[in-house]
């Protein structure tokens, strides 16, 4: 079967400011902090080029987006949750420097947010 493409949000992925990236993804949908989203990310990254992130929630979400606040283009990836798909995804992303990871989960016109800081260090001088 020929695969149907062209639902890639170019403007969100090219936005170079976190607020613009969010508004290009979700317009001005209201955002509220929630601890119903389980975000697993390292506190200190072993390698800024490969930072494992996983997100899981029981909320009835339509999409999950992962942003790195201080990245040149903050939106890293977006998962559009399909009917038979669990809201339990993971990916590996790039981080240029210590930054906050922001995860937004979209459910019935609302955005639920959780964040965590991930430190990127030059390493060494271990205890």
């Amino acid at each position: 079967p020929r695969v149907v493409w062209a639902s890639w949000n170019a403007s969100a992925f090219s936005a170079e400011d976190i607020n613009l990236a969010i508004s290009e993804t979700y317009g001005d949908m209201p955002i509220s902090d929630s601890d119903a989203i389980a975000l697993k990310a390292p506190s200190i990254a072993e390698n800024g080029a490969v930072v494992p992130i996983s997100v899981k929630t029981n909320l009835p979400v339509e999409s999950i987006s992962i942003y790195v606040e201080k990245n040149p283009s903050p939106l890293a990836c977006k998962f559009n949750i399909q009917s038979r798909m669990a809201a339990d995804v993971s990916a590996r992303i790039r981080m240029g420097e210590t930054s906050k990871i922001i995860v937004l989960a979209q459910a019935d016109g609302q955005l639920y947010r959780t964040t965590q800081e991930v430190k990127v260090t030059i390493g060494g001088c271990g205890g």
Partner: peptide
């Protein structure tokens, strides 16, 4: 937890 950061990977 930070072995690959504090010591060589």
């Amino acid at each position: 937890p930070y072995t690959p950061i504090a010591n060589p990977q």
